[in-house]
């Protein structure tokens, strides 16, 4: 009888114990679907994305949506206040979430948020970084790797140019930003394990 769904894409971590697993999932799905649609709309605006095959567009989005959402919603994880804000608008302390069952995954999400927000990127830089997160040729199921790779290289080049231009005395920022990519992959894997645990419950 799992009583909590500890994802800030939910309106609240509390779930109705009288609801079926399917009902809980339906409610959760209703909460996160608009954010997923926004990721798709964002992808469509990436120059060159629509030129990829529909199969590769879907593969990139399937593999990368969680990571894009982590970047977009990193500010929900407030490291200074040690709180997480859920989509319903309520803040929960890390301690409260731990008492509800949150473990290492929450720690990793807080660490990521601290690392990313600490770079103090502009909206434009964050947006371009998000395109680099999404357009990644090594995702599983990509058919035309060369096309995705070419687009990926273009986006990384633009990101490097923008970061170099905006942070002339902070040459390490671009490297630090690229180091967030494997961190996101790791979070993605951890998230899949959390989803599996949810399904089992």
């Amino acid at each position: 009888n799992r009583m909590h769904l500890l994802c800030p894409m939910n309106t609240s971590p509390h779930v109705n114990p009288h609801k079926s697993g399917h009902g809980i999932w339906e409610e959760f799905s209703h909460s996160f679907t608009p954010a997923v649609r926004e990721v798709v709309e964002f992808a469509k605006r990436i120059p060159g994305f629509s030129d990829l095959s529909q199969h590769d567009q879907v593969s990139l989005l399937k593999a990368g949506t969680f990571e894009v959402l982590v970047v977009r919603f990193a500010s929900l994880f407030d490291v200074k206040d040690r709180t997480v804000t859920f989509l319903g608008g309520t803040k929960y302390s890390v301690e409260a979430l731990r008492a509800m069952g949150a473990g290492d995954f929450l720690t990793s999400m807080m660490d990521f948020s601290e690392n990313l927000m600490g770079l103090s990127l502009s909206e434009e830089e964050m947006s371009l970084f998000t395109t680099v997160v999404l357009i990644s040729a090594d995702r599983s199921g990509i058919e035309n790797v060369n096309s995705v790779e070419a687009l990926q290289e273009t986006l990384i080049r633009h990101l490097k140019g923008l970061i170099t231009k905006n942070h002339t005395n902070e040459s390490a920022i671009f490297t630090k930003l690229l180091l967030r990519l494997p961190e996101l992959r790791s979070l993605n894997n951890m998230h899949s394990e959390q989803l599996l645990a949810f399904k089992i419950h």
């Binding site: 798709v40 879907v58 399937k62």
Partner: peptide, 27 residues
Amino acid sequence: FSDPASNLGLEDIIRKALMGNLEERPE
């Protein structure tokens, strides 16, 4: 559970959002 995106309905949401784009695209 090798493909969480498909199992959780994510692929369906993605496909529908992408299809909307195709329908809106002028020929």
